[in-house]
């Protein structure tokens, strides 16, 4: 193995992680919502909201933490609006998702232009520092995995926790119950509306944080429509991952790796139109959807309207 090859592998691994992390946050958020029986079509808009408000919070205060909190707050607020309209006013989950997505496409672009910022002077200046894990970071090839920022490590913990959460904790089991059969769950005293609201709000916060990761640690600046379909890719990753957090992790990694690969193709100078490289994640998504069909494993009451008797 020559050193050039090693360097390329290193870059590939590093950018795979960078591309995977925002999608994985959103997909985990979507997974929690869907486990409780509600489809979250608003992941795209939630990511955009998180991306903008994290950027803005950081811009105003100079604190990454405030940026993260702003993204979470935007997610929680949107999650509440989604919960009320879907659970109380029986709004279609798809239509609410479309509405939220169009709304945030507009709102974030509108606010971004109002604050009148563009270009380098408004960049997030203090990149979230990376935390080096001693010894492990020196391992050849995969050392890059152990010099990530705290939001990446937090995500690893979240993936592990989510798996346990749904199988071992009361709240997790209740969420699953209202996703499988809300009427049966209600009959044994589980509050369907409360549990679903919790799932939607927490899920929306995670999706928004995924967007926040994009501005705080990747682009360092907000760009209009910068999420560009990643929310939908996250949505697909949930199906590919057959509604388990481990599966969702693998699904997101596939997209991350594909995007990273299409980057490398451009960097090493293979002469194709840049749009062809940009298409890759979407084509991969379709191929993956076709290959994954048949397994299913979706919560039984996913997407169905719930009317309290």
């Amino acid at each position: 193995m020559d050193s050039q090859f090693m360097i390329i592998i290193g870059i590939l691994l590093g950018s795979t992680i960078r591309y995977t992390v925002p999608i994985l946050y959103a997909a985990l958020g979507g997974l929690i919502t869907e486990k409780a029986g509600v489809l979250n079509f608003a992941l795209e808009g939630l990511m955009l909201a998180g991306a903008f408000f994290a950027y803005y919070g950081n811009l105003v205060t100079g604190s990454i933490l405030v940026g993260v909190l702003c993204a979470l707050a935007a997610g929680a607020l949107t999650g509440l609006i989604l919960s009320i309209s879907i659970l109380k006013y029986k709004a279609s989950q798809l239509v609410m998702g479309i509405g939220i997505n169009i709304f945030y496409l507009g709102l974030t672009g509108y606010f971004f232009r109002i604050i009148g910022s563009s270009g380098a002077e408004t960049m997030v200046d203090d990149l979230l520092g990376s935390i080096h894990i001693p010894l492990l970071e020196d391992i050849p090839l995969i050392g890059v995995l152990f010099e990530q920022n705290i939001l990446v490590y937090l995500l690893v913990v979240l993936v592990i926790f989510t798996a346990r959460f749904f199988n071992k904790t009361t709240i997790g089991l209740n969420l699953k119950a209202v996703g499988e059969n809300p009427y049966a769950a209600a009959a044994v005293g589980v509050d369907v509306i409360k549990n679903r609201t919790l799932a939607i709000v927490v899920g929306s916060m995670l999706a928004a944080l995924g967007g926040g990761v994009m501005t705080l640690t990747m682009a360092r600046v907000f760009l209009e429509n910068m999420v560009n379909g990643r929310g939908w890719i996250a949505f697909t990753a949930i199906i590919l991952g057959r509604y388990s957090s481990k599966g969702v992790l693998i699904g997101c990694l596939v997209f991350g790796a594909a995007t990273a690969l299409s980057d490398i193709v451009q960097i090493v100078g293979i002469d194709i139109p840049y749009q062809a490289a940009l298409m890759v994640p979407y084509i991969i998504t379709i191929v993956a959807l076709v290959l994954s069909v048949g397994g299913g494993n979706a919560p039984a009451a996913l997407g169905a309207r719930y009317d309290r008797e």
Partner: peptide, 25 residues
Amino acid sequence: VPYPLVHALQGIVIIAVIISAYFIE
């Protein structure tokens, strides 16, 4: 007024109308 307001407004219209459908029902 920055142009993206158009999309924000359309999003609000969609959400308002879908919620109003509940009251219509």
